[in-house]
């Protein structure tokens, strides 16, 4: 067990170092940082001075080490476009994305599991068939079209919900939250549905197929023979055993939510980190891009690690295998 954890953590660190190298290379080779910082009227003396100041005359490995040290302390330099430290901008934008991701993740997991169990139990039912068909369309629809469709129905035609922005926010310390105002909550509905829908259908289909498999298993048949009630069989015995793959996929999907948030945030002009990243790409704002890359890879690697370890903890069969080899 211990060796396994150490090995996985070692792999994660290597991944982060490689991603760091990519981010650093972006800084170093995509566009000349000197060009970006000095204006048209520069002298060779200015260039040389800035070069030494930024440490660009030092060997590559040393620069890379310096970059990693800065990144670990949350120092990613200054945004070319806004002229402010990248870390400040990211901290400002983070609450919007995290609140959105949290709500849609919650929505996807609860609704996904509930609908999955429902469609598995009532496999032949009319409602289950309708849900399955709709979910197929949901998987094929690109996220941004779902967003536009929702805006069209609920903002343009019905005029019920706002189509862009976060509404009013309240500052709690440094955290700006939209949970406490009516307009903030209203603004959250459409983006959260847009972002969560795809993951929800995914979780639902997974729970359904796992559930159908488990319901055929001998121990379920035996439980039925014992005369246990349907509710106990379905939820106590069957659902519990479907959860192992569901947890893995859900965990990995957590990362996708953050990535797909880029699309949702652009559709709804939601002032989060994703919108910041898209704008950074459009204007080739390298420091912001590099910082976002580092941030998101730390998150992905952590999620993967946690999911792997959780998987190991939940499924006893894996532990036996590991001991055997």
């Amino acid at each position: 067990m211990f060796a396994y954890i150490v090995r996985r953590m070692f792999q994660s660190v290597i991944v982060l170092l490689v991603v760091g190298l990519v981010a650093f290379s972006m800084f170093r080779f995509v566009g000349d940082p000197i060009d970006n910082m000095l204006g048209q009227e520069r002298t060779q003396a200015d260039i040389d001075r800035l070069r030494t100041e930024l440490g660009l005359d030092q060997p590559f490995v040393l620069q890379y080490a310096k970059f990693l040290k800065g990144a670990a302390q949350g120092n990613f330099g200054v945004s070319y476009r806004q002229g402010r430290p990248v870390s400040t901008i990211l901290l400002e934008r983070a609450p919007a994305t995290l609140e959105l991701a949290f709500v849609s993740g919650f929505l996807a997991i609860t609704m996904g599991i509930a609908l999955g169990v429902f469609t598995a139990i009532r496999r032949q039912g009319m409602a289950a068939n309708v849900i399955m068909t709709v979910s197929l369309i949901g998987v094929s629809l690109p996220t941004f079209l779902i967003g536009i469709l929702l805006i069209y129905i609920f903002s343009v035609e019905l005029d019920l919900l706002p189509s862009f922005g976060r509404g009013e926010t309240v500052m709690i310390g440094k955290w700006s939250t939209g949970f406490l105002t009516t307009s903030g909550l209203k603004a959250l509905i459409l983006p959260a549905i847009t972002l969560g829908l795809y993951q929800m259908t995914l979780i639902m289909r997974l729970v359904r197929s796992e559930m159908l498999e488990v319901l055929r298993a001998d121990y379920v048949r035996f439980a039925r023979a014992r005369g246990l009630s349907d509710r106990v069989i379905n939820f106590r015995h069957a659902l519990k055993n479907t959860l192992v793959p569901v947890i893995t996929i859900t965990g990995l999907q957590l990362g996708s939510i953050i990535a797909f948030a880029i699309i949702t945030e652009t559709v709804f002009q939601w002032p989060g980190v994703g919108l910041l990243f898209i704008n950074a790409i459009q204007f080739v704002d390298i420091p912001v891009m590099a910082a976002y890359l580092m941030l998101i890879s730390v998150m992905f690697v952590t999620i993967n690690l946690v999911v792997d370890l959780l998987y190991y903890a939940i499924d006893p069969r894996l532990r036996v295998d590991a001991r055997a080899t």
């Binding site: 990535a259 797909f260 880029i262 790409i281 993967n304």
Partner: peptide, 9 residues
């Protein structure tokens, strides 16, 4: 480990 769309971006 990274979504394809993010890599493409």
């Amino acid at each position: 480990t990274f979504p394809a769309i993010l890599v493409a971006m």
